[in-house]
Amino acid sequence: MQGTTTDEYQTNSPQEVEAAAEHEEHEDYRMFGVVLFLIAESFIFLGMFVAFVIYRSVVPVWPPEGTPELELLLPGINTIILVSSSFVMHRGQSAIKNNDTSGLRVWFAITAVMGAIFLAGQLYEYSNLEFGLTTNLFTSSFFVLTGFHGLHVTVGLLLIFFVLIRSQQPGHYSSESYFGVEASELYWHFVDVVWVILFGLVYLL
């Protein structure tokens, strides 16, 4: 028993570590598990957002005096890219539901590119900021929130790559079995929603 488990453990992609191995015709609970996981994840962000809102409301001057204004143009474009990528990705899922693997691949590839642009944009923004992580409470919050979100985007990208690699295998995804597609998409939507809230809180408010 041991041997088998370990082998499968290694060949599985991370998003499926948390799921049973079978790809047979049983009812499968993995999406249920993914949803529970995302509920937990959302509470990490919620915790940080609430902390941010408290700082905002109790610190006399917010952002503290001398904090340079945040540029809105680049992150604005970034937001639009990320939000639209969610719709693009959804077309990928629709494609696989019609057993259209190449459609899946195209749409997911576009999503990945959009995600990568988002990350690149964020890195560019970081490198052009006039403040650092420890300048003051606002800047620390800024970096930790956007950075933690960026980490999630990165994970999301990895998931998309796994789906892309897996989809090379003929018949791996089909209209019957597309857990990986569905899970990575849900995750991506989640990351997206978090960003919209984050953008509102940090940039707009």
């Binding site: 937990a40 994840e41 959302s42 509470f43 990490i44 962000f45 919620l46 915790g47 940080m48 902390a51 992580l133 420890t134 003051n136 409470l137 620390s140 919050s141 930790v144 933690f148």
Partner: peptide
């Protein structure tokens, strides 16, 4: 538990990097 995780992450930043959350 996730909220505790958030607290731990912020505390780590204060401890290691010197932020002041």
């Amino acid at each position: 538990t996730p909220v505790l995780a958030a607290a731990m992450i912020l505390l780590s930043f204060d401890l290691i990097v010197g932020t002041t959350f």
